[in-house]
Amino acid sequence: MPHTVQVIGAGPAGLMAAEVLAQAGITVTIHDHMAAPARKFLLAGRGGLNLTHSEPLEQFLERYGEARPLLEPAIHAFPPEALIAWANGLGVETFVGSSGRVFPKQMKASPLLRAWLRRLEGIGVKLVTRSRWEGFDGTPTILALGGASWPHLGSDAKWVPVLQAAGIEVNAFKPANSRFLVHWSKIFRDKFAGTPVKNVALTYAGKRVRGELMISQEGIEGGAIYALSKGLREHPGQPVVIDFRPDLTVEALAQRLTRPRGKDSQSNYLRKIAGLSPVAINLLRETGTAPDAAGIKAMPLKLERPAGLMRAISSAGGIALDEVDAYFQLKKMPGCYAVGEMLDWEAPTGGYLLQASFSTAVMAARHLASQLKSG
């Protein structure tokens, strides 16, 4: 009689776990409480599905911070090149963007998901929607229920009390890769909401990152702020410092600014001589920062707080890492594994979130398959 496994959650981690198990000859049923699979995955792919990153693996692994010791073996077992090959096997070609991020050429999640669901159906995986997990029933199980961001798309964290009742420690969820609130003036907000601030460097609590920002109605977001979000969230109170010309030294910029302004307005002068965009010039005004070399290279911006879990790209918190073994099996619930964003790890955007979700699913599914086959 074939072995039977249930996978709870039809996001990318759950679908990947089901594929690995089915290819090992195991009968798999996926349960998801939503009406359709991978809702958050589809949303993430609307602006370009960032599958993984092409940077050297050692640098890649540093992005996981304190969770690296647990995640590293899984990412070695299913690294970025394996994820790219898997996507190619579905007929989805990929490319490496200028930032090193890896995307499908079609820049969407829906073609990949359609091909993936066809493959899963072809290898016998059954998908049951509108089916919510209510507790461990002795069936070998892989839990892939997600974290707590964008709850209306499925990751509503309603599984937390079930695991806590079993004595499993679950750390409180917090927004990660989130917009931070800023009290803009109405004039600035109305003029610049939706405007990118490109090629900047941000410094907070001794950490410096390069990237891009986006001005929003409520505050500021984008890859550079996401990369600092853990420090900003856990050690609030100080302004983030923005360097608008990270490729120039203060001295080189100061030398440029000695050139006479002539009949140019200050804005035109700063645009021509310092290379500042209109949004950068107005950010200096908004914060009352002098438009000299020191101010352009180190403008302080006071942030209020993260915007909240509802629209955060991802969440920190979840199952404490010491509650699972090296294969992501729950120590207090043998035969039950937890993968993806259910676990208490976080990473910046750039492909790191999906990569770890896929890799933990592969590691857990391979181990469960081997356990079942060995009896």
Score class of each variant (00 low, 15 high):
75 I>G: 00
124 G>V: 07
81 E>Y: 11
109 A>T: 08
255 Q>V: 05
4 T>W: 03
368 L>T: 07
125 V>M: 12
326 A>P: 04
81 E>L: 06
360 T>W: 11
73 P>W: 03
142 I>N: 09
268 N>C: 01
374 S>E: 15
46 R>Q: 14
347 A>G: 08
96 V>G: 03
206 G>A: 03
354 L>H: 04
274 A>I: 03
369 A>S: 15
119 R>S: 09
138 G>R: 07
35 A>D: 13
202 L>M: 12
258 T>H: 01
151 P>F: 14
282 N>V: 00
14 G>P: 01
203 T>E: 15
264 D>F: 03
144 A>V: 12
180 F>V: 05
299 M>K: 04
8 I>Y: 00
30 I>M: 04
91 G>L: 06
63 R>H: 14
79 P>G: 09
186 K>T: 04
264 D>S: 07
184 W>R: 10
290 A>T: 10
184 W>C: 07
259 R>L: 12
47 G>N: 05
341 E>Y: 02
89 G>I: 05
260 P>E: 04
290 A>K: 14
212 E>R: 06
233 R>N: 13
347 A>R: 00
229 S>F: 01
130 R>Y: 08
232 L>I: 14
368 L>H: 10
160 V>W: 03
33 H>T: 09
321 L>T: 03
219 G>I: 13
156 D>T: 11
317 G>E: 08
25 G>Q: 10
239 P>Q: 06
32 D>T: 10
225 I>W: 00
166 A>I: 06
143 L>P: 02
266 Q>E: 13
277 S>R: 04
78 F>S: 02
371 Q>D: 10
240 V>L: 14
59 Q>S: 12
111 P>S: 10
92 V>L: 12
